[in-house]
Design a protein around this nucleic acid. Structure first.
Length: 393
DNA sequence: AGTGCCTGCCC
DNA sequence: ATTCTGC
DNA sequence: GCAGAATGGGCAGGCACT
């Protein structure tokens, strides 16, 4: 976990990469360590290692190559290749169409439907093996034998290897429509046989990162998209290209957004097409924008809820509440029904201040007219008197 | 076999 | 996922 | 602007215990 940078102790991936680069550079006689150039040489080593890691994020490959060939020659030995998942590019959230237009002013861009499913990075190796990886590079291959099976009819002639970025979405084969994420998450994950898959999925491809031995991440999205469309086939209910629209007027985008929502999608992804349009897994990772329907003004609902309990905080939040249990009053049954927990959106100052405020309201236990479940995660560490009402957006 | 609890993933 | 904070 | 670390709902899976 240390090496994977998942310990949550302030030592995460970037720190590990810096340390590794420095260690190798300093112990390698090939690195010239003159007084004035030392810092520059180290920075250069870090840049190289990070760049290589973004294409081939596996220490099993990078460390041996570093030890054998040194930092300089690392890019010649470690390149993007099917079978090793790369960190998928992520998108910046935006709250309005204006924000999107400001950001992409004077640039060619495209809008795509944002499908409500699971990120799926599909790899075809030269050996013929197929691998499917999740957003966090987990191996989902055993979860999707149905996708594996249908792959031959999706890939075009002459395709011997590729890495595709896509979204796997639950699909209703009778109604021929997209189903919510909740349905998809009901799929089995292990020991799945293609024959007894209950929740059907349709794959929506939206990017191509590698094709027939060639890395495409440095090409622009326009180029990658052409390659995607010319080398793969649409297959009804099984594989489709993410729906896109290149228009840039407010009206066109507005209409497209509404269309996406009608089609059971979450909203739009907006991406540059030509300039700054390469696929950058780690460097400029938030190069795309997402425009979700529930971010938009007036679309989301708000509720007045009563704070009935608090959960003791961990880590940075040790010493006050890390989250709260909220309830809604039902006048018919004369009781407070717990609804949800809330744990983000508080600055540290607000958390400290709130802890003071709730100190006065600590109750011995749950009120008789509190209605809550059995599960321990709805049993707060501290119960409160029902005094504080909060507007929840 | 059934239940409850916990973990580790998705979002 | 969302959100805040330190750099 | 980015990386890191808090936190959410909900699901399948797996373990322990009945």
């Amino acid at each position: 976990r240390s090496l994977e940078g998942k310990l949550r102790i302030g030592l995460a991936e970037q720190s590990v990469l810096v340390s590794l680069s420095h260690a190798i550079a300093l112990s390698d006689p090939r690195t010239k360590l003159s007084e004035d150039k030392c810092g520059t040489a180290l920075d250069e080593a870090v840049r190289t290692v990070k760049q290589v890691y973004s294409e081939l994020p596996t220490y099993d490959e990078i460390v041996p190559a570093l030890l054998k060939h040194g930092v300089k020659a690392l890019p010649d030995h470690c390149k993007l290749r099917p079978g090793i998942p790369l960190k998928p590019m992520l998108a910046h959230p935006t709250k309005s169409l204006t924000e999107v237009l400001n950001r992409f002013e004077n640039m060619a861009f495209t809008c795509e439907f944002k499908y409500d499913g699971e990120r799926a990075q599909i790899h075809l190796l030269e050996s013929g093996d197929v691998k499917i990886y999740s957003r966090n590079s987990e191996d989902l291959s055993v979860k999707y034998p149905d996708i594996m099976q249908r792959l031959p009819k999706i890939i075009g002639p002459g395709v011997t290897s590729f890495v595709m970025d896509s979204e796997a979405v639950a699909w209703d084969r009778e109604q021929k429509c997209i189903l919510p994420f909740q349905v998809l998450s009901g799929r089995k994950r292990k020991d799945v046989a293609a024959e007894d898959v209950k929740v059907q999925v349709c794959v929506f491809g939206f990017d191509l990162l590698y094709l027939n031995g060639e890395t495409l991440t440095h090409k622009s999205l326009v180029e990658r998209r052409v390659l995607l469309h010319t080398n793969f086939n649409h297959v009804e209910g099984e594989f489709a290209f993410a729906k896109h629209m290149d228009g840039s007027s407010v009206e066109q985008i507005q209409t497209f957004l509404e269309e996406s929502v009608t089609g059971n999608c979450e909203g739009l992804m907006v991406k540059t097409l030509e300039q700054e349009a390469s696929y950058e897994p780690s460097k400029r990772s938030r190069n795309w924008l997402k425009l979700k329907k529930d971010y938009l003004d007036g679309v989301g609902d708000s509720l007045d809820l009563v704070v009935v309990g608090g959960f003791t905080g961990k880590g940075k939040r040790t010493g006050w509440y890390g989250g709260y249990l909220l309830a809604c009053y039902d006048p018919d049954r004369e009781e407070y029904q717990t609804i949800c927990k809330i744990g983000t959106g508080f600055s540290e100052e607000a958390l400290a201040q709130q802890a003071e405020q709730f100190k006065e309201l600590i109750a011995d236990g749950p009120k008789s007219y509190y209605q809550y479940g059995d599960s321990p995660n709805v049993r707060p560490d501290v119960w409160f008197e029902p005094k504080i009402v909060r507007l929840v957006l």
